[in-house]
Amino acid sequence: MESRKPRADATRNRRQLLEVATRMFASAEAEPSMRAIANEAGVGIATLYRHFPTRESLVDAVYQDQVSRLTGGARELLAELEPPAALRRWMDLFGEWIATKNGMLDTLLAMVESGEIAHAHTRTELLGAIDDILEAGRTTGELRADLPAEDIAAALIGIFTVAGSPANEAMAARLLNLLMDGLRPTTPGHDA
């Protein structure tokens, strides 16, 4: 039997649910209810459950969508921007990804613990995205060659742990700019 393509309205509903869930997870102090997500997306609860039968399936879809955006975003940014500008913009995307986890943290942690989400695979993908940008910057001489992606990821996690809330947006931007300053090669005759 031939598999059918999803109807246009089904595809649109799924995309809308993912966008709304992502936004609500990012802005929530606690995990929003499935009903609240459906209401905000303008669909019935049955439509939400048809696309995402469990909270875990919705969290997984949002999580995978965000990881895909981050990894694909690195390539897209490099196609448009010089490596330092691409890396700085990618850092903002990383911060948005971290923020999305706020409203789904309990479910996400349970899924990582149970093995439903392969944390190691995600880590490898994200480090690969950072490496792609770093390598481009090393090739052009615009980014230091002595820093591994792991160090940058650790610095980003630290920054967004300290300044990840919307109230600290200006602080996060300053810290990210400071990190970028440290990623540029020093010029001869200047102190490091």
Rank of each mutant, 00 (worst) to 15 (best):
T122L: 06
G103H: 03
N102K: 11
E116F: 07
T107W: 04
M111W: 05
A120R: 15
R89N: 07
I117H: 04
L70Y: 07
L108M: 12
E76S: 12
G95A: 08
L77G: 03
G73L: 04
Y63R: 02
E116S: 14
L108T: 04
L77D: 03
L109A: 10
K101N: 03
F94W: 14
S114W: 09
M104W: 05
R88W: 00
P83A: 11
L105M: 13
R89I: 00
S114L: 07
A118F: 07
L77T: 04
A79K: 14
A86V: 07
S114A: 15
I98E: 09
M104A: 08
L93F: 12
R69W: 01
M111L: 08
M104Q: 09
G95W: 10
W97I: 00
L109Y: 11
S68Q: 12
D106Q: 13
L105F: 10
G103F: 09
V67H: 01
G73H: 02
A79M: 10
T71R: 09
A79D: 14
V67M: 05
G103I: 02
L87S: 06
A86K: 08
T100Q: 03
A79Q: 13
R89G: 02
K101A: 09
G115I: 10
E76Q: 13
T100N: 06
H121K: 13
D106I: 09
S68D: 15
D106T: 13
L108Q: 08
E113V: 08
A79E: 15
L105P: 00
L81T: 06
S68K: 10
A118M: 09
Q64Y: 06
L109F: 08
L105R: 14
M91E: 04
E113A: 13
T100D: 03
W90C: 02
A79T: 11
